[in-house]
Amino acid sequence: MSHDNSSPKFLQHHFHDVEQQYETAKLGMWAFILTEVLTFGGLFVAYVVYRSWYPEMFVGANLLLDVNKGLLNTIVLITSSLTMVLAVWAIQKKNQKLSLFMLIATFLFAFMFLGIKYLEYSHKFEVGQLPGEYYSYMGPEIAHLNNPHIFFSIYFIMTGLHGLHVAIGMGLIAWLIYATAKGNLNSEYYTPMEMIGIFWHLVDLIWIYLFPLFYLI
C-alpha cells in the first residue's frame, strides 16, 4: 500500500485524507437514502391510488387499527431517534461511555417498537384481517365496504417493509455497540455511527408518515 505509516489506520488506502473519506461516505449515504425514499415512494403511490379508488373503504378500514399502539410506537421511535443523535453527540464530545449507553437505549427502543408491532400483527392474524386472499374478517363495522383486503394488503406491505428496516437497523446498531465498546469508534473516527444514524432517522421519518396515513385519516 502506498500510504505512509503516519496516516491513521482507519484511513483506507485509496483516499488522500480523513476528510475526503468522511465526505465520500456521507455523500454515498445520502444517495442511498434517496433510493430508500423512492422504494417507499412506489408504495405511497399505491396507497394514494387505492385511497382515491375506494375512499369510503379506507376511512372505514382504518378504524380497525389500534390507534393507541400506533401512537405508542410513534413515541418510542421518535425517542430512539433522539437517543441515536445523543450517541453521536456523546462520541464527538469524547464521552464513549455515554455514547455506548445511548446506543443500547436506541437498540432497546427499536426492540420495543417491534414488540408492539408483533402484538398488533398477532391480533390481526387472529381475527383474519390479513392481506389479499387470506383476508377473512367480516365484522359488522366493515360489512358495507368494498375490497377491505386491499387496505390490509397495503398496510401489511408498507409496515412490513418498514419493520424489516427496523430489524436491519437493529443489526447495524448492535454492530455499533460492539465497535464502540471495543474502542474502534472514537472521537476521531465515528463515521459509521453517523451514517447509521442517518439511516435510523430515515426509518423514523417513514413511520411518521405511515402512522397518520394508516391510523388517523
Binding site: A46, Y50, Y54, P131, G132, E133, Y134, N146, N147, H149, I150, S153, I154, I157
Partner: peptide
C-alpha cells in the same frame, strides 16, 4: 406478492 398472497393490487378480479 400478488402471485403468492393475491394482494389485489394488480389483479382486477380482486379489485386491483
Amino acid at each position: 406478492l400478488e402471485r403468492l398472497l393475491g394482494i389485489g393490487i394488480f389483479d382486477p378480479a380482486l379489485g386491483g
